[in-house]
Design a protein around this nucleic acid. Structure first.
Lengths: 289, 289
DNA sequence: CACTATTTCCTGTATATACAACAGATCCGA
DNA sequence: TCGGATCTGTTGTATATACAGGAAATAGTG
């Protein structure tokens, strides 16, 4: 009963299979889309294949990322995708509707669906590794780990993170550099309950962000920005003088209902800006979906 | 044919009506939900009532805003709302799914749907009026219009806004104050094609944001933040000395494919932070929905 | 040729139905 | 009383179907 979960004969590749059965009045026409190959993926605790609409989303995203679908190109119509993928139009519709809500596609009624133009970097709206950001810009990434230890958490921070005062917390201070120039100082407090092995990582190989993201998906993020003249020890590490302002990005992340990390990122004002582009949703004072 | 568009007998109020007809094989059971009263609303060029799933969203949002539904409260189940509102479950499902994607509701499979806790201010992710922000905090808003005129647009800005160099552009500089203390300096360039009457507005009565939002919905926003020591004329207007850093928020907005405004907002570093909270969507390096 | 009406293709919305997955309550027997 | 099976209510996904409405191509007409 239920779904027929065929396994791909071609496990190394992403593939959609369809197998439509005839239907009677109380039996569905059954269709199976192959699940994405999950071996080696983080978050593999999720059992079973992704739901079909998610598979359709992944299918389209992968075609965009592979370069097969370029910016501004028209993609197949919903009905064409129904034929190609062997799913119903409502399923395709949900996938494409969500993707266009996420800014990946644009739709025009009566005309078609188009690949949206690439949006610029949006460090304000994302959580991504500074290393990959530098690499994508063609820079040379390096880092300097100035601190990595267990501490007793101070009461104010404990309150904010929802843990016991003076219990253990992990603290790291890392200076990230592009071509040897300090670009960011990352001052992180990590909840041991979420990342018990944080101190054991080789953070020069895998960045804290990559490591933390690999443990569990972040369920919520809060970003607050501020302009300050930082303390002298920060000025020294970033090689800036006392007249140069700093942009500080405070980030707090949650995994489920627990606070996972609370960090501050200091950017030398003269060397960095942070941005993001988004589409406001449409009620009252306009907000991100 | 098609929908029966009943008018509300109670036009001053938001109301859901249901009128279910019997169905035959090729005729729908018809249901009508009253459209939101549109008289006096901006964007009234949209003809016809909102689609039903949007009406359901508005219905729930209005109940949250009115205080009837408080934070953490469980709301009606989908099937209950189907009965109450006279729409199908898929329609209710879409409405609630989108609301939970927007962070207004939380859903737990097998348990129910709950009103999400109020998220803090998110000036990073929204476009809202500084006046209403100050009023909500209980402050006393006032402003000082330092400039409001038509100028010839410089080539670099013209390029960025996609208009002819040295053509006309509107330029305003306004200092916003809370209890007489300067909180923000707004330096705005407005595309005359979008807001031809910008210069005629009484911007001390209606804030530029409110006015611009009333003209047309913003289709896209870009925010970039930066820390600077501002020019002396800005320091003077904000009453800060030359050692105090400033947070600058650069905002660019689009209406359709045209750039509508390009603005810079200066916040005294010691008096303001800007923040936003969001839920990352779940692909690759995590981004806003 | 120019202009209009029709057709066709596309997305947008709405519904009814069916089943899956999950959580909590309830029942029941050892 | 305990522990498991069963039931019930809830959300999550998938499908078939139908119609509305926009845009562009096409046919038809003067």
């Amino acid at each position: 009963m239920g779904f027929c979960r065929a396994l791909s004969p071609n496990p190394g590749r992403w593939e959609l299979l369809s197998a439509v059965f005839h239907r009677t009045d109380d039996f569905y026409g059954e269709v199976e889309i192959m699940a994405k190959k999950t071996a080696g993926l983080a978050g593999a605790d999720k059992i079973g294949p992704l739901p079909r609409y998610r598979q359709v989303k992944e299918y389209i995203l992968s075609r965009i990322e592979s370069g097969e679908l370029r910016t501004e190109m028209k993609i197949e119509s919903e009905n064409r995708l129904v034929e190609l993928l062997g799913v119903s139009r409502m399923t395709v519709n949900r996938a494409i509707r969500e993707l266009s809500g996420e800014g990946k596609l644009n739709r025009i009624q009566g005309v078609g669906t188009f690949v949206a133009s690439q949006k610029p970097q949006s460090a304000l709206l994302e959580v991504r590794s500074i290393a990959s950001e530098i690499n994508e810009r063609g820079g040379v990434y390096s880092c300097d780990i100035r601190l990595l230890e267990e501490e007793k958490v101070k009461p104010s921070l404990a309150l904010s993170m929802g843990i016991q005062p003076y219990s253990a917390i992990y603290h790291s201070i890392i200076v990230h550099m592009d071509n040897g120039v300090a670009i960011q100082l990352a001052d992180r407090f990590v909840n041991p309950a979420i990342a018990p092995d944080y101190l054991l990582q080789d953070l020069s190989k895998i960045s804290p962000n990559e490591y933390l993201l690999s443990l569990a998906p972040i369920s919520e993020v809060e970003h607050v920005v501020e302009a300050v003249i930082p303390d002298s020890w920060i000025r020294k590490l970033l090689h800036i003088n006392e007249a140069e302002p700093c942009l500080v990005l405070h980030r707090k992340t949650w995994v489920g209902c627990e606070v996972a990390t609370e960090s501050s990122f200091y950017y030398p004002g003269s060397r960095y800006t942070i941005g993001g582009r988004f589409t406001p949703s449409n009620r009252g004072s306009i907000q991100v979906t």
